[in-house]
């Protein structure tokens, strides 16, 4: 009897690495997760390997090489001041990912905290959610533009503005799953064993609301990359000396007929990043759905 159970336990419990491969296989079987992971993964890869891929400075002027179409010398062509578009797009990716990551971190802290409080305490719920309603009544980009305009243009401004816009949305998602989880039996059982509210939220409610949180944060990442481009396009994000994707499009706009690559290249970069993250989020939503897990039943 005893040996039986031990054998079962060994079979049920694969080693760390094997479990990682099994999980990875399950995730990659989901098509949109796989495509999203490849797209976003290559954006991240290019961003970090960027300085190795090109030795051209993104701000090096070359007046003799203005408006060069894509060629072997300049993979993605040059702009009105002869700067290499490949280098500029890669350095722009750093900014986009930095801003996206910052907004996601702020969302993970404040959105999750406020959502958990609203979901857990019915009294706070009304106050917090009415504030969220008020903020969400504005169209996202318009509100971001308003806040950024009020604070003055800078990368920090963009991060703050986008966080203010997306934190209520994240809080909403977290709140709704907290509302479900806090009614589950194990929360009552934890309370009966003397757990405090803080413990219940941290150990029981939030870990069980993880899946929608991860999905929401991946969407927030996509939207912030997109909205950051909008903000800097309008001159409300990064200063013009930084090759942000939005600034690249904004600068290239004047030469759209003669040098289409100036707008198409950063446009495609934004599209790939946002598409990759959206597919990733869609895939995560399916993969993390507990109903999809066969081994839990």
């Amino acid at each position: 009897m005893q040996s039986h159970i031990e054998i079962d336990a060994v079979e049920d419990e694969p080693t760390g690495l094997a479990r990682f491969y099994a999980t990875a296989r399950r995730f990659m079987r989901n098509r949109s997760f796989a495509i999203g992971a490849v797209l976003f993964g290559s954006v991240v890869l290019v961003t970090f390997l960027g300085p190795l891929l090109t030795d051209v400075s993104p701000n090096a002027l070359s007046m003799r090489n203005r408006f060069q179409p894509p060629s072997f010398d300049n993979l993605l062509g040059t702009d009105n001041l002869g700067r290499d578009m490949f280098a500029r797009v890669i350095y722009g990716a750093q900014l986009s990912l930095m801003i996206g990551t910052s907004v996601v971190i702020l969302n993970a802290i404040f959105g999750v905290m406020l959502g958990a409080l609203a979901g857990f305490y019915a009294r706070l719920d009304n106050i917090l959610m009415r504030i969220a309603d008020a903020l969400m009544a504005f169209p996202a980009v318009l509100l971001a533009i308003g806040i950024a305009a009020a604070l003055g243009p800078s990368s920090m401004t963009a991060i703050i503005a986008l966080s203010v816009v997306y934190v209520p949305r994240t809080a909403r998602v977290v709140r709704s799953s907290v509302l479900v989880v806090k009614e589950l039996d194990f929360v009552m059982a934890a309370r009966a064993s003397g757990a405090t509210d803080f413990r219940i939220i941290m150990k029981h409610v939030l870990p069980n609301s993880m899946a929608p949180m991860i999905v929401q944060l991946s969407f927030v990442f996509a939207y912030s990359v997109l909205s950051e481009a909008v903000l800097s396009f309008m001159g409300l994000g990064a200063p013009p000396t930084v090759p942000s994707w939005g600034i690249l499009i904004s600068e290239g706009r004047a030469y759209m007929r003669e040098a289409a690559w100036l707008t198409v290249v950063p446009g495609v970069a934004i599209a790939i990043t946002a598409l990759g993250l959206n597919l990733l989020g869609d895939g995560l939503r399916d993969v993390l759905d507990p109903r999809m897990k066969v081994e839990e039943g």
Binding site: L184, D185, F186, M188, A189, A190, A192, S193, K203, H204, P207, N208, M210, E296
Partner: peptide, 16 residues
């Protein structure tokens, strides 16, 4: 005072 509940299937936190 300790308490145990009716539903053992759902009374434990599934993620730990």
């Amino acid at each position: 005072i300790g308490m145990i509940f009716q539903e053992p299937m759902t009374s434990l936190n599934p993620v730990f």
